[in-house]
């Protein structure tokens, strides 16, 4: 059950770990945005070097990133192969029936591969160096200006924190329900489609009912502790924006300029 993207946080002591979660969140999204500007190998190389630099700064072992990509590599390769085989344009290297390997197809495929790997590296870096609760604090802080248009930033962040808190609990509960049904003779792995669907019923109903009751109890608990919504609520951990955070955003700006210069 360790495939969860969120909650793989590895404590550490590096510049990246100490950055403000808001800066990290904004930079990661910005990185994913500008990666679409890349359209030749020079720009992809630039992005790759930048990613490597950030990974080096984070002092997280490269192995973690490789491990993150490894289960996906076959699927990405499959996607790339499809792109290579079915994209037309440019010099044709090989042609057979509906399949043709062309210049455009090949470059397109390689670029898509790089884009996927870089995006996965960046999102892995974000979740490896930032605790999930810090991320939800960051989201609240970033969304706060939207209160002008009555966007409930506080509630969204609270929801996210509760959801993240309950993911492991729900997983345990699912495991328990599954084992309980197995003890009663339900077989989850065998049988036709209809039988498999029938096996899902005794799994989903207890899960839903217990979740609804849990939400009810949680609401009562919040009420009992005087939950009044976000107005006037203070925080135990206050986010502080520091010089390195501004520097990080400046770096992203410089990276954009380099990209614009490098791209064809």
């Amino acid at each position: 059950m360790n495939k969860l993207i969120l909650g793989r946080y590895i404590p550490g002591n590096s510049i990246i770990h100490h950055m403000d979660p808001r800066a990290k969140l904004i930079s990661s999204f910005y990185f994913i945005g500008i990666i679409f500007l890349c359209n030749n190998w020079q720009s992809y190389l630039g992005m790759f070097l930048f990613t490597m630099l950030v990974i080096f700064l984070s002092k997280v072992k490269v192995g973690f990133f490789i491990k993150g990509v490894r289960p996906l590599i076959w699927l990405i390769l499959f996607t790339v192969t499809l792109q290579i085989l079915f994209t037309s344009g440019g010099t044709v290297y090989f042609h057979w029936g509906i399949i043709s390997i062309t210049e455009f197809g090949l470059t397109n495929g390689i670029f898509i591969f790089c884009r996927f790997v870089l995006i996965i590296f960046m999102s892995t870096l974000l979740t490896l160096t930032t605790p999930p609760l810090a991320l939800s604090d960051a989201i609240e802080s970033i969304l706060r200006p939207l209160a002008v248009i009555h966007f409930p930033a506080h509630e969204v962040s609270l929801m996210l924190s509760i959801a993240l808190r309950f993911v492991p609990t729900l997983m345990d509960e699912t495991e328990k329900i599954m084992n309980a049904q197995r003890a009663r003779g339900v077989d989850f792995s065998e049988g036709s489609l209809i039988q498999k669907m029938k096996a899902v019923i005794p799994l989903l109903i207890p899960l839903f009912v217990s979740s609804f009751n849990r939400a009810e109890e949680l609401a009562t608990a919040m009420e009992a502790r005087g939950y009044q919504g976000g107005v006037g609520r203070t925080k135990y951990r206050v986010l502080s924006w520091q010089f390195t955070d501004t520097l990080a955003l400046v770096c992203m700006g410089v990276l954009t300029l380099i990209l614009v210069y490098l791209r064809a």
Binding site: L158, M159, V167, T169, L218
Partner: peptide, 9 residues
């Protein structure tokens, strides 16, 4: 809030 959070989970 709690029910939406738990459904998200």
């Amino acid at each position: 809030i709690t029910i939406r959070a738990i459904l998200t989970a």
